[in-house]
Amino acid sequence: MIQLKTMMNCIDNSGAAIVECVKVLKMKRHAKIGDRVVVVVQKQRNFGPESGPGGSVSISNANKVRRGDMRHAVVVRTAKKLQRPDGSVVKFDDNACVLINKAGEPIGTRLNGVVGAELRKKNWSKILSLAPMHV
């Protein structure tokens, strides 16, 4: 149930940690898993020295987005229950999204965290292949 002002976790390595929804695209109601939203980066992720090959890179270089940036994103987890066509229901403990560019390609190169399988139905296969797990 992602709507205006909803704060979400950003689970990719684009540099955003917490983002706020400012617009749900192409619908009049709240966004669910697989829906596209416009977000504002509210909190940056500060990569420590253990952040892989870019360990020595400063924060400004490692982060592809900065605080205050407006980006598109795809919702990948919702705390609201989502029913599937077979009657099963999935619910996560948090709301999470993945930042994308205008063309729909993910800005980050890695995802950490489980994503919903509804992304396949909505043709976000690139995000699904990046994700470590989907349910």
Binding site: R77, D86, S88, V89, V90, F92, D93, D94, M133, V135
Partner: peptide, 23 residues
């Protein structure tokens, strides 16, 4: 139906399943 809860990649996930579902 049954409600199962688990933690996958440090995120809590809950799922309802219909026990008689053909799936």
């Amino acid at each position: 139906g049954i409600l199962l809860r688990n933690e996958l990649t440090r995120v809590g996930v809950e799922m309802w399943f219909k026990i008689y579902s053909p799936n």
